[in-house]
């Protein structure tokens, strides 16, 4: 799980072009939206694509996103339980 979380942080930084943010700057429980990393709605869509492309997870219900994308921890938990690749 620790490895997955580190990998996820790296992918988030890369995919969302988070300049000046390093893997070490993101804590597992940091909020991804709002006061945390300050991501926006387009970033949320990019995270949905990332889940599909990298882990084979298709999120069809937008309501799921709110709980899945709370933090790296919640994302990693969901990926570990639902990944197909």
């Amino acid at each position: 799980m620790a490895e997955l979380k580190e990998e996820l942080k790296g992918k988030i930084i890369e995919v969302l072009n988070l300049e000046d943010v390093a893997v070490e700057d993101i804590q597992d429980d940091d909020a991804l939206f709002g006061d945390g990393l300050g991501l926006d709605s387009i970033d949320a869509l990019e995270l949905i694509v990332l889940m599909d492309k990298e882990y084979g997870i298709k999120l069809s219900d937008p309501k799921q996103g709110k709980s899945i994308f709370q933090s790296v921890q919640t994302m990693a938990d969901y990926i570990a339980a639902n990944r197909t690749k």
Partner: peptide, 9 residues
Amino acid sequence: IFPSPATFV
């Protein structure tokens, strides 16, 4: 097919 929303906008 994995179009990027951030590119599309």
